[in-house]
Write a protein that binds this DNA or RNA. Structure first.
Length: 587
RNA sequence: GCCCACAUAGCUCAGUGGUAGAGCACUUCCUUGGUAAGGAAGAGGUCAUCGGUUCAAUCCCGAUUGUGGGCUCCA
């Protein structure tokens, strides 16, 4: 239940808009069968079953018909009926999918249908009272889907739409979509020369250009620094390993679909690594471990390769080769909770430093198929839960969504279109310690199996960077900006002084560029603005004679005058404090 | 992988069954200009790839590859 009346109203409008769309579709294409049509964020969709897909022209026709039906001011009438009657009615209407839906409704729940004109649909409701209340809507796109979301089932044709109280709200929403497209990391990646993906290299394999790499280096440096501060050891492992190791780990069984095909090296099969864990285990196993050594924390920026079906690739957010900011912790059972809390602290530090203050936290519990004892699962899940609560994190439980080897916490952040992407994760693993038979010597001199935790903070550097680009719309805070300062001499009489300033700022550790082109100052400013460089320094006659700098900020037109030392002090502070500056809020 | 759409110059995009166009960017020249585009000239394309239809294909048809929006799956 929600107390937010506006939201509820909007949901009702959208739900009714979905019905209106279904009615229009049935009028135009009577052979089409209806399935379900729920409300989603900012709109609705309806899935239909028919031979041929909808084409863009169909959408125009359907939308036009919806408007016509709206003008007919049809009352929308609710009716409850016995299950048998409902089944018969939808059978008579030749709507077999509705039969399945009815069969899923709990036996003590009422069966209700809504009728508007000649169109009747099974629905829990509520709905608006009359089609005339549906005016501000637009059909957006189509896609294929599967009945009940299962690809073994029938292929359905989905139409997405959006609906609002007023035309003004609709226009604002469409405008918001346009704005979101402008901050798409794929578009900005090209415009700001951050990265690329080429046909020749292959889909899902990223080329980091100098400016993107610069940011990546800063992300990595910060990451390493924090890990050394927090008791982690850095390790490095190769990009490939023998298939045998992956058989031991179990990946050849349960993760085979995601592993790149093996290659034959002198008669032995090798694969590109899809994960880093077995390597870290090898390092752990390289000598005998005492309880005094635990917890052992191995961290690696490990690049992994995973086969992903071509249709799922998406810019930097879903790729086939990516670098995980991975770590594996080996600990005594009584150390788990404390370690998880520390990991959560690190996650929050990282997210905050990069300006992500909106995220969703999920706790995934035991799935149907699992390894380890129920008792251990219970303990581990509780440890995760306790840690979440002690860290004061709000979270949702994803029942049964844990991986088969242990429960986990996932954290998701969103892109410019409000789609959530998993970045951070903390997972308990009961499987690998057993498979690789790792152990440590306890106080009592006996061997025990350590508990293993997998964890990543940014998840994949590619994905995290992609979200970062969208979060800031390419206007990175000073500490991350690939070019922090650009010098804009007004005439070539000012080049010499520009060189002097350039040297001083560069020696102070800033990333500086000079624009020595034979162009007017307005042109250079425009260019620097498009490149989203945080600080522009205009250098002309006045500055040169007085040995000062005229500084213009990226997002305000005001110019402030500084000496070089003043500016250096001010900006050094902005960098060292990782000030977020002018982060744009996502939509 | 599945459904639909798309693929033309470095970028953004027009366009036609008879051998290709703009703007920006690039190169050269003129201009030395004070806070979001000064002017001129030039160079740049096997119209994604392969096949078919046709006297003739960038355009029509098919396949392939890639991209986009979803579905399924996931960091």
């Amino acid at each position: 239940m929600t107390n937010d009346k506006t939201k509820t109203d909007l949901e009702t409008i959208r739900h009714s808009a979905a019905h209106l769309m279904a009615q229009a579709v049935k009028q135009l294409y009577p052979e089409t069968q209806v399935t379900i049509g729920p409300v989603i964020e900012d709109g609705f969709y309806y899935d239909f079953y028919r031979k041929s897909p909808f084409v863009p022209e169909d959408l125009e026709k359907i939308e036009k018909r919806m408007k016509e039906i709206s003008l007919q001011s049809l009352d929308i009438i609710r009716k409850e009926m016995p299950r048998e009657e409902a089944l018969k009615m939808f059978d008579d209407m030749n709507e077999p999918f509705k039969r399945e839906v009815i069969n899923d409704i709990a036996s003590n729940d009422p069966i209700s249908v809504y009728t508007q004109g000649e169109f009747t649909d099974l629905c829990r409701g509520p709905h608006v009272e009359n089609t005339k209340f549906l005016k501000s809507f637009k059909l957006l796109n189509t896609s294929a889907s599967y009945w009940r979301g299962d690809e073994r089932n029938k292929v359905l044709q989905r139409i997405y739409g959006t609906a609002w109280h007023t035309d003004k709200e609709l226009r604002l929403y469409l405008k918001r979509l346009e704005e979101a497209k402008k901050r798409d990391h794929r578009k900005l990646g090209k415009e700001l020369d951050l990265f690329s993906v080429t046909d020749e290299v292959g889909p899902g394999l990223i080329l980091w250009h100098p400016k993107g790499s610069r940011i990546r280096c800063l992300m990595e440096d910060f990451w390493k620094e924090e890990h050394f501060k927090n008791g982690y050891e850095m390790v490095h492992s190769p990009h490939a390993a023998k298939v045998d190791m992956w058989k031991t780990s179990g990946h050849m069984d349960f993760y085979k679909d995601n592993i790149f095909s093996p290659m034959d090296i002198e008669g032995k099969e090798y694969v590109m690594k899809p994960m880093n864990c077995p390597f870290h285990i090898q390092i752990y196993k390289s000598r005998l471990r005492s309880y005094r050594d635990l917890p052992v924390r191995y961290a690696e920026l490990g690049t992994v390769y995973r086969y992903e079906r071509s249709g799922v690739l998406h810019g930097l957010l879903r790729v086939r080769g990516f670098t995980q900011d991975d770590a594996h912790l080996f600990c005594r059972p009584n150390q788990i909770e404390e370690e998880i809390i520390k990991v959560l602290d690190l996650i929050l530090l990282i997210l905050k430093s990069f300006g992500f203050n909106e995220y969703k936290v999920y706790l995934s519990t035991r799935p149907d198929k699992f390894v380890g004892s129920e008792e251990n699962w219970e303990k581990a899940t509780n440890a995760l839960k306790q840690a979440l609560e002690k860290s004061k994190l709000k979270y949702e439980i994803d029942p049964g969504e844990g991986v088969f080897y242990g429960p986990k916490i996932d954290i998701k952040i969103k892109d410019s279109l409000n789609r959530f992407w998993q970045v951070s994760t903390v997972q308990v693993d009961f499987n690998l310690p057993q498979r690789f038979d790792i152990n440590y010597i306890e106080e009592d001199g006996q061997k025990y199996q350590p508990i293993m935790l997998h964890r990543a903070l940014m998840g994949s550097l590619e994905r995290f960077f992609g979200c970062l680009v969208e979060h800031y719309a390419g206007a990175f805070p000073l500490w991350l900006a690939p070019v922090q300062i650009i010098l804009l001499p007004i005439t070539d009489q000012n080049h010499e002084y520009s060189d002097e300033v350039f040297k001083k700022l560069t020696l102070s550790g800033f990333r500086v560029e000079k624009d020595l082109r034979n162009e007017k100052i307005g042109f250079k400013i425009r260019d620097a603005q498009i490149q989203k460089i945080p600080y522009m320094i205009v250098i002309g006659e006045k500055e040169q004679t007085n040995k000062i700098l005229a500084v213009r900020k990226r997002r305000s037109k005001e110019t402030i005058t500084f000496t070089i030392d003043e500016l250096t002090d001010k900006l050094s502070l902005e960098v060292s404090e990782k000030k977020l500056g002018e982060s744009i809020q996502p939509i």
